[in-house]
Nucleic acid binder design. Structure first.
Length: 188
DNA sequence: CTATTGATTGAT
DNA sequence: TCAATCAATAGG
């Protein structure tokens, strides 16, 4: 399991380091595992970040200890999952945008009501539904026994850096990262 | 209190 | 390209 020091680093660095790691979530008797293939960084002085205008009821988890989950509800129907980075009080996080399904695939298909592997976790709201991540996981530590991120093996990755998706402000920054040629990313 | 918006998705 | 759908936020 990745420990606190992994998350207590500059947000962009953590966003890149998270690629190729494995998210594990055990809930309702099922173990879900997915390889992180796409992330985005959200900084404190970044117009696209929820914390750009300071602390609010919604974004306060982003100011928690590094390695905490920040989950928010958006567009009236979707959840997105972030990993809090930097020192406590910093207000930065990494959005997990896509996963490659590894374990719990049959349950993911049920949760998503989809059959094709690449439709299960290829988007921030999709992976939340597949992994049963919702507001119950907001403020929950990723150092928990049933909810954590781990390293498996030591594979060198080719990382693509590009602009973030879906934002209206801060579009010029290359804060989106994904594994080159991976077919489980949300889009090119 | 009210109006607008949004780190999305899935269907057309 | 566009509707679905509503909580959080910004503005008064």
């Amino acid at each position: 399991m990745l420990k606190k020091p992994f998350y207590n680093k500059p947000t962009i660095e953590v966003a890149k380091n998270l690629l190729g790691k494995y998210l594990v979530h055990e809930i309702d008797g099922t173990k879900y595992v997915g390889k992180i293939v796409e992330t985005e960084a959200y900084l404190e002085d970044d117009p696209a970040s929820h914390t750009f205008n300071g602390k609010t009821h919604r974004n306060k988890a982003m100011y928690d200890e590094p390695g905490t989950a920040y989950v928010y509800f958006t567009y009236g129907m979707y959840h997105c999952f972030n990993v809090v980075t930097g020192k406590k009080g910093k207000g930065e996080a990494v959005l997990i945008r896509a996963l490659e399904p590894i374990e719990g695939i049959e349950e993911m298909k049920i949760n998503r009501n989809k059959d094709r592997l690449k439709d299960l976790c290829s988007g921030p709201a999709k992976l939340c539904k597949a992994f049963k991540i919702d507001k119950n996981q907001n403020h929950v530590s990723l150092l928990s026994k049933n909810f954590f991120i781990e390293k498996r093996g030591n594979i060198k990755l080719e990382i693509i850096e590009t602009t973030r998706i879906g934002i209206t402000k801060g579009k010029e920054k290359n804060y989106r990262f994904y594994i080159k040629d991976n077919k489980f990313i949300s889009r090119n």
